[in-house]
């Protein structure tokens, strides 16, 4: 359930209860009544039905991806079959990070 959409805070109302959020191409005002911690301009937030429900710590994105790599690594142990896939993946990551 619950369509959740991440976006970046562009500005915050003087009362501090609303923010203008960029959803990577469209903007919309969202309410800050129920966000879990104080937010400031430039923060990323997760939004649902026009309300921010979580400030997304930027470091967590890297953390999540590492978690996934670790899962793959564990499943891969003793399995050479996937060497080619991992090679491809690393190449893709280098390309996208480069």
């Amino acid at each position: 359930m619950c369509l959740g959409v991440p976006g970046k805070i562009l500005s915050i109302s003087t009362e501090g209860d609303r923010a203008d959020v960029d959803f990577f191409g469209v903007r919309r005002e969202v309410r800050l009544d129920v966000v879990d911690e104080p937010v400031s301009v430039g923060d990323y937030v997760l939004n649902h039905v026009g309300f921010a429900i979580r400030r997304i710590p930027e470091s967590e994105i890297g953390v999540t991806l590492e978690l996934y790599e670790e899962l793959i690594r564990r499943a891969d142990e003793n399995d050479l079959m996937t060497a080619d896939v991992r090679g491809e993946m690393n190449a893709a990551r280098k390309a996208s990070d480069g």
Binding site: V5, G25, V26
Partner: peptide, 13 residues
């Protein structure tokens, strides 16, 4: 697909 359209599509589902 234009970026703005992609964004609107994500936001509105």
């Amino acid at each position: 697909l234009r970026d703005e359209v992609r964004a609107a599509a994500e936001v509105l589902g």
